[in-house]
Design a protein around this nucleic acid. Structure first.
Lengths: 240, 240
DNA sequence: GGCTATGATTGATTAATATCAATCATCCTG
DNA sequence: CAGGATGATTGATATTAATCAATCATAGCC
């Protein structure tokens, strides 16, 4: 991989605190690659060969069973994914595909495990990353189990706005049918929920959503940091 | 805490590989307590004061929002819970209550964090525990999003049997309404699903469930280790 | 510009699940 | 043993969400 890409990685929480020799060693065997859109990077069930770090673009995590498919999350730069599978040396539980042209750094999982054993600061960072990821998933599950679909949409809008300093207007970062799947509903249902939520302090035009009455929207969403997350402080990590 | 309780803890993956001084030090400040049934040990939103280890009994993890409540999991001996909150030094995302009279060892979270920094083997073990817990939650979420309620019940029965060496007959380990909540449905709905599943290779009397035709049941459940877990190999860890 | 592919929306319908109300077991207790 | 609590079940109904089918935008693209 190119030298000018390394500082980006070095800034990541997972790599920030590791020793320089360990980092340089990992970087020598890591390689960087740019993938076209819609490419399946990882298929669930395969063994974890590489820790992936997304540098540019975005990657969607999804899961399949018995012919059905659901979006589990989206990973944005700069963060790692499928750390858990690498640590456990077990099969991936989710698949991953690029949503757009994306640059990914891949580090062989075996080398990651060696580095973890050798560098305790690195292990601490990995531990924190996994703990964050664990909590992200607990919140996601609470959202699914405790809110119905209209409430989930309202909370999603409110949270997206909150991440942007409570901006009144936001653009949906993904196609609507992918958002629908992520929120645990069908595209048709999302369409109707979008119509319904416009009775509660929101106007929608295409992918642009404007909050006209935050209090009314919040009355539906009942935002809660124990579900929606801490706000604009950190990027959400999503290992696997 | 009593000396004769320590070997039980020492056997835990999380404590097995740590150095003896670190372990002894932690044990000096840890204390063991027996709680009555139905006692709220942890309330979601509070800050993580203690890492909890369950020695005897069982503990239910649940989550609350806007007056609704849902069961997120059950923890059995010997395992830890709410590790993630301790590691992150952030509020608990779930509440925990004893299901029966239970013995719990509590280790101050601050001391756990110190021990993690000092003992890299301990950090490695915590990392693995968190990775396992993360994966457990990914599977749980996949189950909720990809299967409908009858399929979830069928998979649950099949998996409980599988954990007991494919025993033909199992006893439900929890009250039905708690199982219903865990499986993401109402008690009434579980009742009807139990009736429905008896058309597919199962007979139920009270809490006892007998599989009469495994293939027929599997045709509904479509068991998958990427959702249901690895089988009878390990106890499922559930930190937080 | 018209054509085509893709995704979004809408309407009609069905299926799944929740809710409400009542009854039925079961167990515990006095 | 009767009475009372608790949880399970059942039936009727309402709500929610999924499915099916069609239409509608939009964005390339020739």
């Amino acid at each position: 991989m190119r030298d000018d890409e390394k500082p980006n990685l070095r800034r990541l929480p997972l790599f920030r605190e590791m020793s320089t020799p360990t980092f340089d060693n990992l970087m020598q065997i890591a390689y960087s690659q740019t993938f076209p859109p819609q490419l399946e990077l990882i298929r669930q069930g395969e063994y974890a060969d590489f820790l992936h770090v997304i540098i540019e673009g975005s990657v969607e995590l999804h899961a399949t069973w018995n012919g059905r498919d659901t979006v589990m999350g989206v990973v944005h730069p700069v963060s790692t994914f499928i750390l858990a599978a690498c640590v456990c040396d077990e099969p991936y539980l989710m698949s991953a595909r690029t949503r757009e042209r994306s640059q990914i750094v891949m580090i062989p999982a075996a080398d990651v495990r060696v580095a973890l054993r050798r560098d305790s600061d690195y292990a601490m960072a990995a531990m924190r990353e996994l703990a964050q990821g664990y909590r992200t998933f607990v919140r996601y599950t609470k959202n699914l189990k405790l809110r119905d679909s209209l409430e989930r949409l309202a909370a999603y809008i409110l949270y997206q706005s909150h991440k942007l300093d409570d901006a009144a207007s936001i653009m949906l970062p993904v196609e609507k049918r992918h958002l629908a799947s992520y929120l645990g509903m069908t595209p048709e249902n999302l369409s109707r929920s979008i119509k319904a939520v416009q009775e509660h302090g929101v106007t929608v035009r295409g992918l642009q959503i404007t909050i006209t009455d935050r209090a009314r929207l919040a009355a539906i969403a009942v935002p809660d940091p124990l579900i929606d997350g801490p706000g604009k402080i950190t990027a959400s990590p999503l290992p696997a």
